[in-house]
C-alpha cells in the first residue's frame, strides 16, 4: 500500500499548489508505482470530464422573467420617467406636491420608533425581527427602525425611515416598500389617502 501522502500530493498538484520538491517526489513515485499512476490519471480524467460539461445557457426570456418578479419600481424613478414622457403631468404633479406640502412637516417630526402589532414579531431595541420558521400574517409597517425578515410575512411590508434585510430563508408574499425620502413619504401618504391617483401613476 502506498503512503497516503502521495494521494495528498496528487491533490496539491491538481490544485496547482504543489511546490517543486514535492512535485519531484510525486513524479518519481509515479514512475515506479503503477497503482498510483492509474489513480493519478483517473483523477486528471475526472477533472477533465467535469470541466467539459461547463457550458450552459440560461433559458430564453430569463431576464424578462426576473424583471417581472421584481417589486414595483421605486416611485421616484417611475415618476421621473413618467414626467419625462408626459410633460403635461408636471403641472398636475406640482399641484399635488403643493397640496401635500403640509406633509413635509409631519415627515420631519415623526421620528418615533413604531411597528404594527402582530403575532410572532420580535422587537429588540429598534429592530423588528421575523424569526426563522415563523409566519406573520398581515401587512407590516415599521417606522424609524430596522426590519429583519428571516421567516415569512404574508402581506405587504412598508419600512419608513429605516432599513430592511431579507435573509435567504426569509419570504414576503406581498409588496415591499421603503420610504426614506420626502418624495417617497408624500407618495406613501397619497397611496394611503387616494387610491385612484396611485392607480393612475402605477399603470
Amino acid at each position: 500500500m502506498c503512503p497516503e501522502h502521495i494521494i495528498e500530493l496528487m491533490h496539491q498538484y491538481l490544485d496547482e499548489e504543489i511546490d517543486p520538491e514535492k512535485e519531484q517526489i510525486l513524479r518519481e513515485h509515479l514512475r515506479s508505482c503503477k497503482e498510483c499512476e492509474i489513480i493519478f490519471n483517473e483523477l486528471k480524467k475526472t477533472v477533465a470530464f467535469v470541466k467539459s460539461i461547463s457550458n450552459m445557457q440560461a433559458p430564453a426570456d430569463f431576464t424578462a422573467h426576473v424583471l417581472a418578479r421584481l417589486p414595483k419600481e421605486k416611485k421616484k424613478v417611475l415618476a421621473a420617467r413618467l414626467l419625462r414622457n408626459h410633460p403635461f403631468l408636471s403641472a398636475a404633479s406640482l399641484f399635488v406636491v403643493l397640496m401635500m406640502g403640509s406633509l413635509f412637516s409631519t415627515w420631519s417630526q415623526d421620528r418615533e420608533f413604531s411597528v404594527t402589532n402582530q403575532k410572532n414579531l420580535v422587537v429588540k431595541n429598534n429592530t423588528v425581527i421575523v424569526p426563522k420558521g415563523e409566519v406573520v400574517k398581515g401587512d407590516v409597517v415599521v417606522r424609524n427602525g430596522k426590519l429583519k425578515i428571516e421567516g415569512e410575512i404574508q402581506g405587504d411590508v412598508t419600512v419608513i425611515h429605516g432599513e430592511k434585510y431579507l435573509a435567504s430563508a426569509g419570504h414576503v408574499t406581498g409588496q415591499i416598500d421603503e420610504v426614506n425620502e420626502v418624495f417617497d413619504w408624500i407618495w406613501y401618504q397619497m397611496k394611503k389617502s387616494a387610491k385612484e391617483v396611485t392607480g393612475f401613476f402605477e399603470q
Binding site: M56, F62, L67, K75, V77
Partner: peptide
C-alpha cells in the same frame, strides 16, 4: 440603488448564464 430596474436588467444579462448553470448543476 436609486431604483432603476433597467440597470438591474443589465446585471442579470451579465450573470444569468453562470448563476443558472450553478443552480442546474
Amino acid at each position: 440603488i436609486k431604483g432603476d430596474q433597467d440597470a438591474f436588467g443589465e446585471i442579470v444579462e451579465i450573470y444569468k448564464n453562470s448563476v443558472y448553470q450553478l443552480c442546474f448543476r
